[in-house]
Design a protein around this nucleic acid. Sequence first.
DNA 1: ACGCGGTATGTTATCGCTAAAAAATTTGAT
DNA 2: ATCAAATTTTTTAGCGATAACATACCGCGT
Lengths: 352, 352
Amino acid sequence: MSQGSGNTPPKRPLTLRDVSEASGVSEMTVSRVLRNRGDVSESTRAKVLEAARELGYVPNKIAGALASSRVNLVAVIIPSMSNMVFPEVMTGINDVLEETELQPVVGITNYKPEREEAVLYQMLSWRPSGVIIAGLEHTEAAKAMLGAAGIPIVEIMDTDGEPIDSAVGISHRRAGRKMAQAIIDAGYKRIGFLGTKMPLDHRARKRFEGFTEVLAKAKLEIADSEFYSGGSALKKGREMTEAILKRNEENPLDFLYYSNDMIGAGGLMYCLDNGIDVPGQIGLAGFNGIEFLDGLPRKLATMDACRLEIGRAAAEIIAKRVETPDAPGGEVVTLEPSLAYGDTLKRKKKPI
Amino acid sequence: MSQGSGNTPPKRPLTLRDVSEASGVSEMTVSRVLRNRGDVSESTRAKVLEAARELGYVPNKIAGALASSRVNLVAVIIPSMSNMVFPEVMTGINDVLEETELQPVVGITNYKPEREEAVLYQMLSWRPSGVIIAGLEHTEAAKAMLGAAGIPIVEIMDTDGEPIDSAVGISHRRAGRKMAQAIIDAGYKRIGFLGTKMPLDHRARKRFEGFTEVLAKAKLEIADSEFYSGGSALKKGREMTEAILKRNEENPLDFLYYSNDMIGAGGLMYCLDNGIDVPGQIGLAGFNGIEFLDGLPRKLATMDACRLEIGRAAAEIIAKRVETPDAPGGEVVTLEPSLAYGDTLKRKKKPI
DNA sequence: ACGCGGTATGTTATCGCTAAAAAATTTGAT
DNA sequence: ATCAAATTTTTTAGCGATAACATACCGCGT
């Protein structure tokens, strides 16, 4: 009779049985009501819901998942949270999963392969319904786990390589090539490169490779380069730009290619502050298409990495595969990064 | 005899029993080996590990959690992922939890109370070991759930109010007051405010309240204000600054207080581009202390919101409480936001 | 040989829920 | 009324692990 009106914090956690007793039906029926499954008469449904609400019952998904062997989690494994790009991917993933009953669980690897392996193991031990993981490069053990997991795997950001299952991303090599071509077409000759030291950022590396490849075809090569790690990227961009320009004063560079927009923006500010004519005297370009470039005094040339879109597409693949478990899989979505010339990269010269 | 060398992806998912059979010991012993609990002889330990590795067995935490009623998840509920501040809080949380066996699970509310309630319900149904949730304002239902969950709860970002259990943050009222005082002390009189429209951002509201309160004591009030929503904050800051300055040309403002650094930076750039003397003709200040301010041509005055530190402290509270379950709880950590004058806010005038 | 204090392993009984099958109830056509 | 068909509800068995207890084993002093 006395169920208490939910004011006293219960010492023993509530279970289906409590709701069952409070509403006078079997546990199974309560379970059905709470999951909206199977036919339940309107009257018992109301009774049960009322009792559950009254008690403040929250179903135990651990038990539910074990019993039904259905886990509505999607493991998301990304290198970092602190550089704007992955939060945005996350936003895309969230937007899509919000509409489903799937829920993302995030693991951070800090760009360390062994950390990735450990995080993946942790994640898989929750038996998620799918995995979204950044990059195509993983340890052998990680690849084995992913291959054997028997769930949809989507490798994101990059499509230059062999995916384990599905992949969504852009070709970073192509992005590098495209940018190089635009720079060459605009007539720049002495090109400097500025980027991170991080040797494990495969995507930056691939962009660089594509970039130099096209340069080489035009009988050009990187005239000088500068690398950084840690710290405020904007400030670093400024400092590196100063350093590389000063170092090449007697034979000045006419273009600077930055491996991301933050350092690019720093470089742009340095140029503006020092009265350097952009893009006349020197051209600049970054990578990522981060939103705030819009507010800069001059718009930095960049290439959109389609971050939000990648997140959405990856989540959609997982969602679809969860709905139709025997669909084929292996889908590869290559998004086309669009080049934004902005105000720091001259347009192609008129064909002669 | 033939266990297969793990090359064939098994149709039936692996369980303890498989490892048990492969290694010729009981499931319990396998479990003990895999968790490093209890005494197991070196020889069987080796046998078991070898078998597990060979098979590619990954333990099922769902089952483990149910059996042991220990779930090493920490629910983290935040409003958004897209504005720099929460990713940084997440980084702090991650840094600390990485050292423990706890794992964060993130839910995004998009600043919507009803969404928060739903996300919280989802999260609690995983029976996490703790909850870290942004803000002190929640729906009644959400408060009830948090109160009844029987696990450590840490409300973060804000300490102006009554926490349910523990709290880590800064006093946004105090932050507003402090900034107002600094502005008054510097001798500014006609102050404009620029912020987001978001009526549900309680922390921005509290800063505003503290700010106007101190202004009122000095017989001052906000001379004009401007609000925005959506879009590139940097660009909006620029536009809003232009608008508010133009609108007050005949009786010009001498200070602009921005509710975040992004729009503040936009405003700063507008001023610099238009040859406005900062901080002589007009002073500027933002809020957050985001890293990239370092790279701006002039350093915006701001107040650090201690984001990383908040994340760490919150995670530490949870970790400690998980270790010592009968510790008291109710800990409130109020961090002191430090005022950075930068180059856009004059120092206090010498006392007369 | 006996029994003692260990350590090393195995057994049994849940954990809280859901799938599947069985039972009870209602409906409806004759 | 009557019985088959349809609907609603209950019962029975796990899901894959772990806690707690039970047993087997080992060396060793007497």
